[in-house]
Design a protein around this nucleic acid. Sequence first.
DNA 1: ATGAGAGGAATGTGATCACAAATCCTGCCT
DNA 2: AGGCAGGATTTGTGATCACATTCCTCTCAT
Lengths: 216, 216
Amino acid sequence: MQIQPRTPDQTGAAHDRVYRSLRTRIMHGELGPGEALTLRGIGKHYGVSMTPARESVRRLAAEGALTLSSSGRVSTPELSNDRIEELAALRALLEPELASRALPRAHFALIDRLEAINQGVSQMVARHDASGYIRMNLEFHRTLYLRAQAPAILAMTETVWLQLGPTMRALYSRLKRSEPPYNHKLIIAALKAGDEPGLRLAVRTDSTQGLRLLKN
Amino acid sequence: MQIQPRTPDQTGAAHDRVYRSLRTRIMHGELGPGEALTLRGIGKHYGVSMTPARESVRRLAAEGALTLSSSGRVSTPELSNDRIEELAALRALLEPELASRALPRAHFALIDRLEAINQGVSQMVARHDASGYIRMNLEFHRTLYLRAQAPAILAMTETVWLQLGPTMRALYSRLKRSEPPYNHKLIIAALKAGDEPGLRLAVRTDSTQGLRLLKN
DNA sequence: ATGAGAGGAATGTGATCACAAATCCTGCCT
DNA sequence: AGGCAGGATTTGTGATCACATTCCTCTCAT
């Protein structure tokens, strides 16, 4: 909890800086489910008044990244099993579509970068860094999906990731086993082979398998 | 532009009332693409200060219902063709899924209500009421999808509708022909027959055909 | 007639304040 | 020891203000 002065080159508005920082922290699972936040606390943390903090929180609440209680209190969401299943279904719908659109544009340079990111994923798994794993995993997917040239679909997919952030943290810090990113290798293989049905299946499996473990 | 005093039973917060009203107006196509709004104007209109107006606008901007220019000016979005195609693709992905989930729960009472709403659609088509047509059309779809018991997917779908609101207004007020809602009849027939593939296809066609006309 | 420029109006942003509601903590009573 | 009441503190909400920026319009010179 320390002041984080605004860097002089960052010319964005204050609320946008706060929003972006909070959004990244939530998406990467740096906050667990049900953690409480306060407007004054956020303001203090970023060295701004309540106004930008409020706007950031409202924006994140609109995206489902934060929950507002009936009295206006702010916290990260605690998802029910039904909601987790729905969000997994959304990933299963959206991500194969993005992968399929990216496939014809996926050249060697992209595949190389995906393999490099995948090594980063393995490192995070090895050191049991839940947040780092989530960050690398999402970077893998986003790098692929950016090639789809479909910003609206990608934005919607990221909204789903955002809602799942705190829950994924709880999930990945619970399971201690160091599983290798097997599905990522399937994805890369399908990309190399130009195998569209295989790619869709691998992406679908990868994006939903983690959530499947949470139904206990 | 007149004061709209808060009804005493409406116990919600001011910003929520403003948000809901603006959201409905945008989704139903009461505002055309590229229309400008001002915080002070919204505040005057609803009899509140700039603060609730600002929060409503930010929230709607987060959902893609409003566009914020680089200088912070607020307006309804003017969608590019690429973005319209993406949003149509999202409807084509999400809505068949919702319809499929609703199918096993669609009993006679629901089908009756759908047929009644469909008559309302025809009325709006007959009187060339673009906004009324959009409202009735969306009510038809929402009534069906509510049976899917999938609030997260439905919320995401409504976000897509919201983004398309102003564009759909421009579309339906341009084409003067009074087309009957043929695909809605296909949807109802598939529901009665329990024909899941037919239902998916009819929903997919219905949700994308209108947007297809806009690619000129 | 047309384009550039200056001045004024309009607009968004962030800070601060008063207020009400909710929450938390303390201490008392059973 | 446990629960409850009551006050103190925390917290969100909405209004208002000062300020910087943007936008519009009118004017004047070419």
